[in-house]
C-alpha cells in the first residue's frame, strides 16, 4: 500500500490485512506494550488544513506508539494562513524529509493531488478531504463492527448496517459505503431526500427515507453528525423536525437486533441526531470507536511505511 486516499483503494484482502494488523497492535497495547520500535527514525507529518483535534491526536498517538517522529503542521497561524499554496507547503515538507504525510483538507481530492502531483515522494494518508472520503474512519468502524459481530476476525459478510444522516456532505458515509461493501456487509443509507447525493442509486448500497423501517433487525446503526451550516440552507425545515424524523432515540435503537450496536464518528450533537439515552446506552460503542481509531491508524502507518516486523519488545 503506497498511499491511502480512498476506501476504494482497498480490496478485501488488503482491508482484512489492515484490520488483522490493527487487531495484533491492539492486543500488544492491551498487554501493556505502549510503544513499538517499528517506525523509529521515520517522520510522520500531520498536515491539518482543517481543525480536527480528535483525528489529529489519534494519528499522533498512533505514530508515537510506533516510535515515529511526529511533526504537527496546522494551517492556522502557519504560512498557509498567509496564502501559501498546497504545492509550496508540500515542497517544504519534502525538503524536510517527511516519510508520510497525513492530510486533512477542506477540498475534496486534495490528498489525491498531493499524492499524484510529483511534489512529494512520501506516502500520503487521507485523514478526511472535504465531502469526499475519510478512509481511516471507515477502517476503524469496520474494525469495531468486526470486534462486536465477528469476534475480531475475517470479513463482514452478511452484516447489515444502516448509516443515517447527512450523507450528501459526509466523507465518513462515502468511505464506509465503499469499505463495508468490499468486506461483504449490506449497507442502507437513511436520510431526507435533500441530503442524499444525486446518483446514490448507483452506489453499492441501498437507501431509504424511512428510518424506522431501515433500522428494523439491523446489526448496527451509524449516526452521522449534522453540521451547523446545513441548518439554514433548506436541507430540512428545522433541527427539531430533523430530530423527530431522523434522530436516534431509545425506541428506534430497540428496533435493531438484540445485540445490535450504535455507532457515531463524533463529535456528537446530543439531542439532534442522537439522544443522550442512545449515546450512553449499553448498545453504544462510540467511545470504543475512538480507542480502535488509534490501532487502525497504527496499522495504516505501519503498512504505508513498510515498517519492520511487529514485535512485542518494549523500549
Amino acid at each position: 500500500m503506497r498511499h491511502l486516499l480512498s476506501a476504494a483503494d482497498l480490496d478485501r484482502t488488503t482491508a482484512i490485512q489492515i484490520l488483522d494488523t490493527a487487531h495484533e497492535l491492539a492486543r500488544l497495547t492491551e498487554r501493556g506494550v505502549k510503544k513499538l520500535p517499528t517506525l523509529r527514525g521515520r517522520t510522520v507529518v500531520n498536515l491539518f488544513f482543517e481543525d480536527s483535534t480528535r483525528t489529529r491526536i489519534s494519528f499522533e498517538a498512533a505514530a508515537k506508539r510506533l516510535s515515529a517522529d511526529v511533526i504537527n503542521f496546522s494551517a492556522k497561524g502557519s504560512s498557509v494562513s498567509k496564502g501559501e499554496s498546497l504545492k509550496d507547503t508540500a515542497l517544504t515538507l519534502e525538503a524536510m524529509g517527511a516519510d508520510a504525510v497525513v492530510i486533512r483538507h477542506g477540498s475534496s481530492g486534495a490528498p489525491h493531488v498531493l499524492a499524484h502531483s510529483g511534489w512529494i515522494s512520501s506516502a500520503v494518508v487521507n485523514a478526511g478531504d472535504g465531502t469526499h472520503e475519510h478512509p481511516t474512519q471507515a477502517l476503524l468502524d469496520a474494525f469495531t463492527l468486526r470486534q462486536h459481530l465477528r469476534e475480531g476476525k475475517g470479513d463482514l459478510e452478511g452484516v447489515e448496517i444502516a448509516i443515517v444522516g447527512d450523507v450528501l456532505h459526509s466523507r465518513v458515509a462515502r468511505s464506509n459505503v465503499l469499505l463495508l461493501h468490499t468486506l461483504g456487509a449490506k449497507v442502507t443509507l437513511v436520510a431526507p431526500p435533500t441530503l442524499l447525493p444525486v446518483g446514490v442509486e448507483t452506489w453499492p448500497c441501498d437507501f431509504s427515507y424511512d428510518i424506522d423501517e431501515a433500522l428494523t433487525n439491523k446489526d448496527a446503526v451509524m449516526m452521522l453528525r449534522v453540521q451547523r451550516e446545513r441548518m439554514n440552507a433548506a436541507f430540512f425545515p428545522s433541527p427539531q423536525e430533523y430530530s423527530r424524523r431522523y434522530g436516534l432515540d431509545r425506541r428506534r435503537m430497540n428496533l435493531l437486533k438484540p445485540d445490535g450496536i450504535v455507532m457515531h464518528p463524533g463529535p456528537m450533537n446530543r439531542g439532534l441526531e442522537i439522544s443522550s439515552e442512545a449515546a450512553d446506552s449499553e448498545k453504544s460503542v462510540i467511545v470504543e470507536q475512538v480507542t480502535n481509531g488509534v490501532s487502525v491508524r497504527m496499522a495504516v502507518l505501519y503498512m504505508a511505511l513498510g515498517g519492520n516486523e511487529i514485535s512485542g519488545d518494549a523500549q
Binding site: G109, D129, T131, H132, P197
Partner: peptide
C-alpha cells in the same frame, strides 16, 4: 452534478 460528483464529493452543478 451527477454520478461522478456524488462519488467525488465535489459540489454539483445541475
Amino acid at each position: 452534478e451527477g454520478i461522478v460528483s456524488g462519488v467525488l464529493g465535489l459540489r454539483g452543478w445541475p
